[in-house]
Design a protein around this nucleic acid. Sequence first.
DNA 1: GCGTTCGTTCGGCTCAGCAGAACGATTGTC
DNA 2: GACAATCGTTCTGCTGAGCCGAACGAACGC
Lengths: 258, 258
Amino acid sequence: MARDDTPNAATVGATERSFRILERLGEREGCGVSELAESLSISKSTVHNHLQTLRELGYVVQEGDEYRLGLQFLGLGDRARQHHDLYHVAKPETDSLVEAVGERAQVMVEEDGVGIYVYQSLADQAVRTDSHIGTVVDLHATSVGKAYLAHLSDDRLDAVLDQVAFDEQTPDTLTDAEALRTELDEIAERGYAFNDEERTVGMRAVGAPILSADDGRVLGAISVSGPTTRMNGTWYHEEVPEMVAQSAQIIGIRATYS
Amino acid sequence: MARDDTPNAATVGATERSFRILERLGEREGCGVSELAESLSISKSTVHNHLQTLRELGYVVQEGDEYRLGLQFLGLGDRARQHHDLYHVAKPETDSLVEAVGERAQVMVEEDGVGIYVYQSLADQAVRTDSHIGTVVDLHATSVGKAYLAHLSDDRLDAVLDQVAFDEQTPDTLTDAEALRTELDEIAERGYAFNDEERTVGMRAVGAPILSADDGRVLGAISVSGPTTRMNGTWYHEEVPEMVAQSAQIIGIRATYS
DNA sequence: GCGTTCGTTCGGCTCAGCAGAACGATTGTC
DNA sequence: GACAATCGTTCTGCTGAGCCGAACGAACGC
């Protein structure tokens, strides 16, 4: 079920190239043909052809000698998000949570074995990181992901864990499937998950699952994250978890009855 | 400068096909291979190849026999939007505006001769239409577009107007370039623009330009729209314009000094 | 159990897409 | 001010990638 099932099936190479170009354009904040061609090991003329095509389609814009991602992607992204009605009910509650806690909050849903942030809300003092709406996150190395996994049915969980690479991201990342399973049991009982610098050094997070109010199915998860300098003591271990779990419950109820 | 400059230049056909498929997937809320193939006049096997490619890239997800747009597009859209810092400063003010007015508000920026909504906020009573984040709108047939055009430099305005098709969308759509120019002069003087069922029958809107506080350059526009049943009288002609213009000014100031 | 329609796989043909070289335009440097 | 370097763009030829149509197996539904 997860990404990269069939490594090299019969696919359309030109489409792959186009998206490699687009993703690179997203990483750099707009760049020129030569830079793209070299970093992707594609000939300049090919890159140029793709960019012209994408420009005519409106998915890339040209500013002098630079190319940028076009805003048309907002449309495709929004369309994709509208299938997950969780977004609409989670948005106002997430904003309220951020207002109460400060820091940063994000709402995650699962898609094809990975977690994707569908909404993020930042307080003024929130730490700027590279995570944003649409960011793909590992389910086993984030508080949202673990909170989600903890309430997944056994067979779905097995399918996801088989795919997880368990690549070590920081010295404290969980690298053992069994250790993760026992932690997931604790999380399921406790009702929320912690992430103590497992993904990013200096950052802690608290995540809670968003559960359907009628059948208990897990719809997604929500988390609050901030620097270790502020996220500590009972604030980190008790008060924030309390608020996150409460918001998650409200979202779950509103998602069920709406 | 505007869309569809060079109709059939040297382009990558496979990429065009992929995006035609993706856009169609966005219109229907997920559909099967055969339906896509028939409506796009592409053979089933080709559609299938593209979908498999896009699935491996994470931009399409497969649910049984149906395909949907993937949430990965949120990432590309967000990256594109981050180049327009207007979004971040406009978001909270737009939410406040919606809270005060009710109805619906949207923030538009121009890209390549067309307007694109980068943010939209809905009150509970707001009318559901097909417009959403990422929607492409004509600059001459919307209140946001006209408010924007009214403050564009003469040469940029000429470039845009040459491209406008002036296709009649409703019986009241402006179809004459000169009539539009005189209306733009009025709008520039007045400070806000109306849209009285020009694009959608039964809907009215009030838009105001977002201007840079130092050099007066137009950064985008913001509008409030609602049904004619509620948008009328002095509420429509005076009070709403007042609030929209004030929000636009606040956004312009915050966009300039931040 | 048959007919229909789905998604997927297979194979062959042709043209679309690739790389590399050549071309102007622009920039910066001595 | 001329040269060198680098940019984006254009051009050309070759070949394999991508297209179509047909065949396949599975899943409904009358």
